[in-house]
Write a protein that binds this DNA or RNA. Structure first.
Lengths: 344, 344
DNA sequence: AGTCATTGTGTTAACGTACACGCAAATTAA
DNA sequence: TTAATTTGCGTGTACGTTAACACAATGACT
């Protein structure tokens, strides 16, 4: 084990000087500094994590910026659960978490969040940048060198320590593949592009369309729908779709509100009901899966995203490791028979 | 932050006495001990991990006991990859791993492993107890109080710190559900019960059969086959199956050697080829998935099992946390479109 | 009664790092 | 030339825990 003492001996100086070199605190003659750096390299020094943190005795606080836990059918509560689990495990390392929730359907709600963050002493931020513009602004006004990690989505123009998310395009392709596996042509497939539109949702639609390419086995149609705020709009859309096409075989819903479509189609017989594939294993979707109203749910392991996010920030702040720049979350396929093994 | 010093003050003793109480080292008068324990409770003491490990300066070695990394089509290499990732992350915590590989088709190979283990100073063991009897014997002869964690499978009669595995029965039900989703009755389904038989394999078969219950929509048949050692046996079995039944619609293979069945059926046309569902995303199975020769692979996240196993042992040994007694690994469904997101 | 072991308690020196402080020597300012 | 400042380097203490050690008081044997 290489220590400051050993480096000091090799360089013929005291450990105080080595320390000044390591922390770039100046007050070292150039020649001496060179000797010390050489010794550091040769001895392959890694600071002792335990000694450092014992000395520093600091409590680190991670700010968590994400939509309210009740939004999107409880989807965000799943991420939060993973974060809390990680925070419990890391309590011995003097890590704390502090939640700042915004309203993902009200960009203005970020003002208040920004005030709260400004009044708190945070060592790092874990952010779900769902409100693209507001979050970009928030980050721009952050104190210099505040590290931040994105989860759930990405803002490509910024420079986070790491990004944890899923390939939306590929998830669309996966949904298409599953449709093809359980149906037989010919027929019509409907994509419900949920609003408000964002990068994520578009990628899912594009992936689904891309899977079929030029194939004419199925007719694929796309409709936009604001399921979140006014579910009333959904009924006429579905009625038109059911009547308009002779054979509507399947519907792909591009966000967590899949269960609303399932409920709207509940009264149909099993034979005439189109196949349903959507996203995220929230409670309402789980119930529909169990009742056979939804065929597949694609999940992005929100619990694991939260857990990993906290752990990465820990490794970055305390261990001072170089963490992976990007974590790609696997595409999970959920059905009735495996859904319980995917819940916490 | 509660320290030994504060407890000592409150109990009116020195920190030496507090330390003796905390570590049950005796030499403390009963009345004093009671006072100290009271103070500890009242102040809600948590030892400072950094101070402890700085003082101890110990390097912990975890012994990893599992089949050779080339066995079962490279399945075990996936677990090992997860372990190595965890060991890299935990290097700053002075954790080391040491692999002991046995031949899962040769129980005698455990003799040598046991000798090696006896000659190594290990702080804990991470074990894949595939060879039921040999592993039981190994554990019985271990030094008293050596902690061990099982992964991949379980030995219900022993008392590990934790068990990381998957519900085999439920995975069988899942396979059945997927068959039903992609096929249409009537027809025959064949279960290939791979040898050597063990608890795991049986549970998978039972789950598959259980899903159909008394339903007569499909005819479900079961055949035993020693695919591992003599793949030659497979051909006649499949030929009999294909000829014997008018409509063989699907085959369920209960271990990682699914690709051998896929290759044997390669020459058949897409229409006449039965659906194939099997286990574990090893390289050969991935290739078959990609070529459309296998429909679904059920995976048990071997990489994550290895990663978690090392982390749990770390938390048990170094952090001295109470770890979860059982970790249930989710049932992952793998297809062509999501297989790459499930690889490391 | 005297020796010797046992019991109960306090004291202290590490572990490696961070950082304040002290103090010469060199440099600058007056 | 002298005082004041800056530069360069070493010393020392503290962080909280562990475990060896010291030492008195008690109890058990000759």
């Amino acid at each position: 084990m290489t220590t400051l003492q050993k480096i000091a001996e090799r360089a013929g100086v005291s450990i105080g000087t080595v320390d000044r070199v390591l922390h770039n605190r100046g007050r070292v003659a150039p020649a001496t500094e060179a000797r010390v750096r050489k010794a550091i390299d040769e001895l392959d020094y890694t600071p002792n994590l335990y000694a450092r943190n014992l000395k520093l005795g600091k409590v680190y606080t991670i700010g968590i910026v994400m939509p309210g836990l009740d939004q999107d059918g409880g989807y965000w509560a799943l991420s939060a659960a993973g974060m809390n689990r990680a925070l419990r495990e890391l309590a011995v390392n003097r890590i704390r978490g502090r939640f700042f929730n915004y309203d993902r359907y009200a960009p203005d709600s970020m003002f208040e969040v920004e005030q709260d963050i400004r009044n708190t002493d945070l060592d790092g931020l874990l952010i779900a940048p769902v409100l693209t513009d507001s979050v970009t602004e928030l980050i721009r006004r952050l104190p210099e060198n505040t590290p931040y990690i994105f989860f759930d989505s990405d803002l490509p123009k910024l420079n986070p320590v790491s990004v944890i998310n899923q390939d939306g395009f590929q998830s669309g392709r996966l949904a298409a593949e599953l449709m093809v596996k359980i149906l037989s042509p010919p027929g019509t497939l409907l994509v419900i592009k949920t609003l408000p539109d964002d990068y994520h949702i578009s990628a899912r639609c594009n992936g689904f369309m891309n899977y079929f390419g030029d194939s004419k086995k199925y007719t694929v149609e796309m409709e936009e729908a604001d399921i979140g705020e006014k579910p009333g709009k959904l009924k006429p859309l579905l009625e038109t779709a059911m009547n308009g096409h002779s054979g509507l075989k399947g519907i792909f819903i591009t966000n967590a509100l899949t269960y609303q479509v399932a409920k709207a189609l509940k009264k149909l017989s099993n034979e005439s009901r189109p196949a349903l594939i959507g996203y995220d294993l929230i409670e309402d979707n789980a119930v529909c899966l169990d009742h056979g109203l939804i065929d597949f749910i694609i999940s992005q392991r929100p619990e694991m995203q939260g857990y990993q996010g906290i752990y990465m920030m820990f490794r970055h702040l305390i261990i001072r490791e170089t963490v992976e720049r990007r974590i790609e979350i696997p595409l999970d396929i959920i059905t009735r028979e495996n859904m319980n093994t995917h819940r916490i």
